[in-house]
């Protein structure tokens, strides 16, 4: 019987390592997979690179600057809209009361 984990998967996967000189870089990605009969949806994004040099491994995160600014601006707009809605509701309540 198919389990929900078969339909939805959220996982972090390491890619094939790339060696340049004495540095080995392993890319890391995060993916959300939703699968249904006769269809599916995949969202895959880079999250970090693992840099190995001299026996030491360092994780360098990949920051999606564009997405952060988008979410920040839209979030600010939603917050303003919510505050305006609350203010309007209070005004109506006060005027009726």
């Amino acid at each position: 019987m198919a389990q929900p984990t078969d339909w939805i998967q959220w996982q972090t996967i390491n890619g094939d390592p790339i060696t340049v000189g004495d540095v080995t870089v392993t890319p890391q990605s995060q993916s959300l997979t939703v699968r249904w009969p006769f269809g599916g949806f995949v969202w895959n994004r880079p999250v970090a690179v693992l840099v190995e040099r001299g026996g030491q491994t360092e994780r360098i995160p990949i920051v999606d600057t564009t997405r952060m600014v988008q979410l920040g601006v839209l979030g600010f707009g939603l917050a303003c809209a919510a505050m305006a809605f609350i203010s309007l509701s209070r005004q109506r309540r006060d005027s009726h009361g």
């Binding site: 998967q9 996982q11 996967i13 390491n14 890619g15 094939d16 790339i18 340049v20 890319p27 890391q28 990605s29 993916s31 997979t33 699968r35 006769f38 269809g39 599916g40 995949v42 895959n44 994004r45 880079p46």
Partner: peptide, 21 residues
């Protein structure tokens, strides 16, 4: 159709996100 869906799901691998060096 199932073969096409499998190809779609294959996009979940890191090779789809990171290009060739």
């Amino acid at each position: 159709v199932m073969a096409l869906v499998d190809k779609l799901i294959a996009t979940a691998r890191p090779s789809a996100v990171y290009g060739e060096p």
